[in-house]
């Protein structure tokens, strides 16, 4: 596979994941807003903004303006529409490596969302658009799964999706668990419920732990559950698996460098204990996992994408 194609597939998946994450968080946030006091809603918006953009401004958050910024502001690098546009740009560059169905689905989704304005959705049910977008993206995932050969390209998509997911999930969890340490403005019962919904985790969680909402259980589930697709552990497993499948013909030394990092990441997650983490260690743990993913990204690029040509002759 061409290095440039691998690069584009990887980023296409990252941007789709980012778009999906934004759509999901916005849908849940807008749906749950009505059930909160203005103060709680404001604190919750602040966490959403920080998780999605990294901004920590305490100012009151206007739902309309914030939604517009997070969803439709093309000047905003992380906006839903920007992520989709970038995903599509990357897909367009590798059309020959995608199935027609994947390209058309993504293209159509973009063309559908591209003209949408806040005014057109706000009056009625603003959450609905994001729900629909989310459904479309789930469908896109399905289309990708069932129309694309599960070869090297597919595994670069997997890498992009899950490396991005670890980072997005990491930030979301970090914001919530850090706030829980503060006490005063910390998440309430309802906020933990919303957090589970941000991660599509409400039902799977209750199946596992019943409806008793406890931060420690939530952390255990979202960090270490091996079966739930939005847990950190699940994504790490996918990353490890994918790393073993890409660049089959690369020189052994180079493959070893990548796989060593994958092994270290997996060990960190496999032997992590939620008991050790609850006394404030969640943030440190997440930071470590995120750092390791970044390192994997760098090594992946250095080994398979931007390597010096003289090293492989």
């Amino acid at each position: 596979m061409l290095s440039r194609v691998a690069d584009s597939l990887y980023w296409m998946a990252r941007y789709i994941e980012r778009a999906e994450h934004t759509a999901r968080v916005l849908a849940v946030k807008l749906e749950s807003m009505v059930e909160q006091t203005p103060e709680d809603a404001n604190a919750s918006w602040a966490r959403v903004i920080e998780a999605l953009t990294g901004d920590t401004k305490p100012a009151p958050h206007d739902a309309f303006a914030t939604t517009r910024r997070l969803a439709f502001d093309r000047e905003n690098d992380g906006a839903l529409i920007t992520s989709l546009a970038l995903a599509r740009d990357n897909a367009r560059q590798v059309r020959e490596a995608l199935s027609n169905e994947v390209w058309e689905y993504l293209n159509r989704l973009y063309l559908r969302l591209s003209p949408v304005t806040m005014d057109s959705i706000w009056v009625h049910s603003p959450a609905r658009l994001f729900r629909e977008a989310l459904e479309e993206m789930h469908a896109l995932e399905g289309v990708t799964y069932s129309t694309l050969s599960h070869g090297e390209g597919w595994y670069f998509l997997e890498l992009g999706r899950h490396i991005e997911r670890v980072q997005l999930m990491g930030r979301l969890l970090d914001v919530h668990f850090r706030a829980a340490q503060d006490g005063t403005t910390g998440p309430k019962y309802f906020d933990w419920l919303v957090l589970l919904k941000f991660c599509s985790a409400w039902e799977p969680y209750t199946k596992r732990y019943t409806a008793s909402i406890r931060p420690q259980k939530i952390a255990e589930f979202l960090l270490f559950d091996t079966e739930f697709p939005h847990s950190i552990c699940f994504s790490v497993d996918r990353v490890t698996e994918a790393l073993a499948r890409v660049a089959p013909g690369a020189p052994p030394a180079r493959r070893a460098a990548v796989e060593r990092l994958a092994g270290r990441l997996k060990a960190a997650v496999d032997f992590g204990q939620v008991d050790d983490l609850m006394s404030g260690g969640v943030a440190g743990f997440l930071a470590d996992i995120t750092r390791q993913c970044e390192k994997i990204h760098e090594t992946l690029y250095a080994s398979y994408i931007t390597y010096g040509a003289e090293t492989v002759l």
Partner: peptide
């Protein structure tokens, strides 16, 4: 040559 993930 083209640059591929597995080499040139």
């Amino acid at each position: 040559y083209t640059r591929t993930t597995s080499g040139l």
